[in-house]
Amino acid sequence: MAGVLARRLFSSVLVIVGSLILVFAILYVLPGDPTDTIVDPSIATPEMVANLRHQLGVDQPFYIQFARYFSHMLRGDFGQSLMNSESVLGKILDSFPATLALTAASSFVAVTVGLVLGVLSAIHRNRPIDLIARVVGLFGISMPTFWSGILLIVLLSLKLGWFPAMGSDGWRTLVLPAIALGLVGAGFIVRMVRSSMLDIIDEHFILTLRSKGLTERAVMYKHALRNALIPAITMIGMLVGEMLAGTVVIETVFSRQGIGRIIADALMAKDLPVVQGVIFFSAFVYVIVNTLVDLSYTFIDPRVRRST
């Protein structure tokens, strides 16, 4: 068990470092110069720009820039924003909790709605509940979040006035964005759980369980569900990443605080240290979540336990 954990952690670190290099490389080859953000290119003299470039270190070769960034990062220094010289780390730490809360809330919506509807629709195949689940799945997958977000605002906020349309203070502001974002995940999970439940229900061992006189409830919720969860959990791990990425749009739609907003603004302004910092943090969260998911397998599926 300790060996599994060690190996997983090692590969997680590799993924994080890899993503760091990748992001750094992409931003490096991107057209445009970071000095543009700081000085107006129409009035700046070439000497000023060269000076600034030297100050920022962007005149150095790629590997030196990366090594410097990396060593700073290891010491907790993610640099300063080019726009207002704020510490990138401070900026991220300020807004990250709001994003995490949104990601967690929408994941909760996705998993709850997805599992419940997926299981019910498989058990009651071709009944009304199955139809509802399939429609929810279809809508979740095919509706873009900015659209469903706007619909929710119009309906639940403007028309009915149940929840605020914007802001990031208190749980009430979380409800609409969490639903808008969670529905996407729910759509994928419903479909996944439904089809894997249906596969499991056709397995021979289900017949055995019934022949032992177990109640349908025990057969379905104790045995079939646990088997069906195995593929669903992989997907949930990946979806959390999707949710994190989805916050970029949703935070804008609902005018929420969060790293989604920060990265959107930073990209517009070519504020590279901020972009790098945010992407690194997101990769970090994503890797942690997926490591947890992988480890949770070991508890659900004995076959994984043996093969590792």
Partner: peptide, 17 residues
């Protein structure tokens, strides 16, 4: 009335002992 089936490999739930 108890039953035993053809494929012992498939007759047990794989995730329970």
């Amino acid at each position: 009335v108890a039953m035993v089936f053809q494929e012992p490999m498939a007759a047990f739930d794989p995730v329970f002992t």
